[in-house]
Nucleic acid binder design. Structure first.
Lengths: 301, 301
DNA sequence: CCGATTGTCGCCAATTTGTAGACAGAGATG
DNA sequence: CATCTCTGTCTACAAATTGGCGACAATCGG
């Protein structure tokens, strides 16, 4: 028997003085209410209600039990509400891991707004380019920029990260401007190299996809370094727009091959697989989606 | 879902740190425990436990809810015990209706012992020979002496009440002593008349049943009156032994037709039809059975 | 490194639930 | 006072839930 359902039925019968009315308020049939109360009496071995064919009233036992039942039912509601409240009030420590470049260029400035919005939270931000397992390494959420991540960890897309092919004006003056992806074979590339596509660049235009493996003179796991070397005229770089942005605006770099585009990378949030996402993590991720882009949840969460 | 079962399962998991051990202690399978806790988390919309493949521990939500759950579960046990205790401690008012004769001759003297045994109870005894409906007339229990009572009220046999045929020595000297039930036709009977058998006397001996309708000169609804008139030599009476007893012992009445016996009457307790008999009533009836005779429950209660 | 134990999940037989409707009784109404 | 309406209980039964079995992958101890 569902003792709680019996308690609720019993309490409602006492409140209303009627099995029928109790049934109406609890959205149960009269016979269900009758059975619940009978079951309760049976399990206690005690008569709780005096019944006539028209109404019911608690006897001494029933009055005592009714008062106790009300306390118990209200405490149970209070307990439910207490955990709901605890869950919905964001506070405590949020530990975030993010890539270096994204952390310094985009996330860092945005964090102040998040902390203004949720003043009770503490945020610990660790910037690193290592592949990090949040469960293993004690983070609540890890941000990643990747092409496509297959992982057993739960991940949520935050935003696409467009990329741009660019070089310094001085480099272009000395080596000519490539007009087609195939022209890149004659140029020096500065490449990231740690994507799933390795050192190949995929560029798509009106005439289809082009897979180019330019001769690379520098392979590094930090796009800011690629940007800075490109600015110094050492080659052509394919790097995220958020990294190249300022140099492009200042004319220190020039975007080339503008009729072609590289598939964007994607910013993901990765977090431990629990049935119910911590509200801290959820609020943080919602903030990132709102701040950095549209929302596509990778796992239908 | 049975929320109470879920609460118990959850609490046991937190206590033991293990779904498996919780299952063993609750005599449930591991999968049942797992499902209960998952259901609770689902209904709250909150993660309560952190799980690894080897053990489980409450998170902050879970710790809060666990503490609340313990309180609720113990209060529920306390409520159950409170009504059980209330039920088992006999006190308060017990209202009894009994027939006049039985009340004055047998019950009255016994009552003192009952009240000694249960000093916290008050007993209200109303002696009347009216047919009384305990629900209608506000009694907890009504005693009846009858041949066979068919009633919608619940009744419990307390004891058989044997009857005796008797007359005064003086009457017998004047009218002769009947040796066979058929001889009663030539005698004057003093009859009760309010039994189902009316004024007919049924006497059974070695030669079978005899239905006699003696000529009655007195028909009254009180056997003591019948006894007193018989003592004065006015006729032959068929009355309960407990009423005739003292006069027989003193020689003021003489038992006759001793090779024949009238079917005994039966002392019943009648009480309102409730699912669980009040402990006051049960104790009183148990006392009567113990004091007055063997126990045969008429309704299999 | 292997065996034992863990928690979760899907499947399914067993059990319980909760309603419909019949029934008898009480109270309201004409 | 008779009739109607609503009551609480009970039975039958379709629908829903329960709870265990066994498979699976992960972890821990020897």
């Amino acid at each position: 028997m569902d003792k709680l359902a019996c308690l609720k039925a019993f309490a409602k019968v006492v409140e209303t003085g009627s099995f029928s009315e109790a049934g109406r308020q609890l959205r149960l049939s009269r016979s269900a209410v009758s059975k619940y109360v009978a079951e309760l009496e049976e399990s206690l071995g005690v008569q709780l209600l005096n019944r006539t064919t028209r109404h019911a009233s608690p006897n001494e036992n029933g009055q005592l039990y009714f008062e106790r039942a009300l306390v118990i039912l209200s405490e149970l509601d209070a307990a439910d509400q207490a955990v709901a409240h605890l869950q919905s009030t964001p506070r405590g420590l949020l530990r975030v891991n993010a890539p270096m470049s994204f952390g310094t260029i985009r996330l860092g400035p945005a964090i102040a707004d998040f902390m203004t919005k949720y003043p009770e939270m503490q945020l610990q931000l660790v910037l690193s380019d290592d592949l990090v397992d949040p469960v293993q390494d004690g983070f609540d959420v890890t941000l990643r920029i990747a092409e496509l991540e297959s992982s057993s960890l739960i991940a949520r897309k935050i935003t696409p990260m467009p990329r741009v092919v660019c070089a310094s004006p001085d480099y272009l003056k000395r080596h000519g401007t490539p007009h087609h992806p195939q022209d890149l074979r004659d140029h020096v590339s500065l490449t990231y190299g740690f994507l799933l596509t390795g050192n190949q660049w995929k560029l798509t235009g009106a005439d289809g996809e082009h897979w180019i493996q330019p001769a690379w003179s520098l392979c590094v796991n930090n796009a800011e370094v690629l940007r800075d070397v490109a600015v110094k005229g050492r080659g052509v770089a394919l790097i995220p727009e958020f990294i190249a942005g300022e140099a492009l605006q200042q004319g220190r770099l020039k975007a080339i091959l503008n009729d072609f585009w590289a598939p964007p990378l994607t910013l993901y949030a990765v977090y431990p697989p629990t049935r119910h996402l911590s509200v801290k993590v959820r609020l943080f991720i919602d903030f990132l989606v709102e701040r950095f882009g549209r929302e596509v949840d990778k796992r239908g969460n």
